[in-house]
Design a protein around this nucleic acid. Structure first.
Lengths: 186, 186
DNA sequence: TTACTTTTTTACCATAGGTTAAATTTTTCC
DNA sequence: GGAAAAATTTAACCTATGGTAAAAAAGTAA
């Protein structure tokens, strides 16, 4: 769905971590683990070395609504909490065994002081992220659920091996029954 | 809808423009003017000194779909074009006489070299923008059109004096007839 | 005021997607 | 393998929103 590779090379990050004594921490999570929950402040950006993560939140009835999926080389955070210090409402769930590198805001700032051009990269990365979300709003406003489903199938076929259809349905903004009906009608 | 004030103080920007000889340009546009069109590369970020701007795009049938509204102290750009160099699909329309300050990517980079802490601010600004878009996707997935309309009324009452209902309807993701029906049922 | 244009509302029918509930298939685990 | 649990599909019915077209209202200009 999103890769940070054009903006932050993980090999360089590991090198910088030693060179500038950033103190980055690694974290391994098992399939099924929810490593960030609603109400827990999100103090880090999580670089996914390897694995697959689903970000979701709960609606008023308590249903899980998938907000996005993230694979290798993506960076995820809960912007509400990480950037603005607001109460975190997102859950981060490992859909398979996942290796993470945690980067705190102070660590990122330190790194950018040493490597100023990375600041530009991270700025662009955030801008690209906004762009992806813009596209998604546009697709909601101009495409039917069936079209969005077919696009997703085409662009992220692996997703359908890793995520439940109910999780994909809520990502598409429909119920699992509707998704099932769409699939039936090919 | 969005203010850049917490991240970029316009008075400081004007001062820096002189101090570092950035060569920022101003632009005045009249009510009704479309100052960026589909296909025109977006080379700048536009700081809205004063005014009101609607950003829209065309769907396959040629209908205008409002993507967002921007008022004083917002910064807008077409990220597809500005960040990634892709073909621009957005139209920027002044809904009233509007004063803009144009900032190119090279100018912004120069400025950040002189004022490194601004880089962090711009990064946060882009992150907040992504956050706002996230919230909008969430509202589409968890609220009815009526709820989204009432929220908009409550949070941006002035919008209803400046924009046509048809423009607000497409922003909400519904037809103007649906919006009219929602208003009728209070 | 009148004429003209644009915007908004209304009405009618069509349809995508939601709701509920049950049946079926797949997965998990003993 | 077989029982239990979880995931998915199916079905019948319902509702919000879309599409079309026309009427009404509001805005604009002579």
């Amino acid at each position: 769905m999103f890769s940070s590779k054009p903006y932050l090379d993980i090999n360089k990050l590991v090198k910088w971590n030693l060179e500038f004594d950033l103190g980055l921490t690694n974290k391994s999570v098992k399939k099924g683990d929810v490593f960030l929950k609603e109400g827990q402040p999100c103090k880090h950006q999580y670089y996914i070395l390897k694995g697959f993560v689903r970000v979701y939140y709960l609606d008023l009835e308590g249903n899980q609504i998938t907000h996005w999926f993230c694979a290798d080389d993506a960076i995820i955070t809960s912007p509400f909490s990480y950037v603005k210090g607001e109460r975190n409402i997102l859950y981060f769930e490992a859909m398979e065994d996942t290796e993470l590198v945690l980067i705190s805001a102070p660590q990122l700032n330190t790194l950018i002081q040493h490597v100023p051009e990375l600041g530009e990269g991270m700025r662009q990365m955030n801008a690209e992220f906004a762009m992806i979300l813009s596209r998604r709003i546009m697709s909601i406003h101009t495409q039917t659920a069936e079209e969005r489903y077919l696009n997703l199938m085409e662009q992220h076929p692996l997703l359908f091996q890793k995520a439940k259809l109910s999780q994909i349905a809520s990502f598409l903004g429909i119920t699992q029954q509707s998704l099932s009906r769409i699939r039936k009608n090919l």
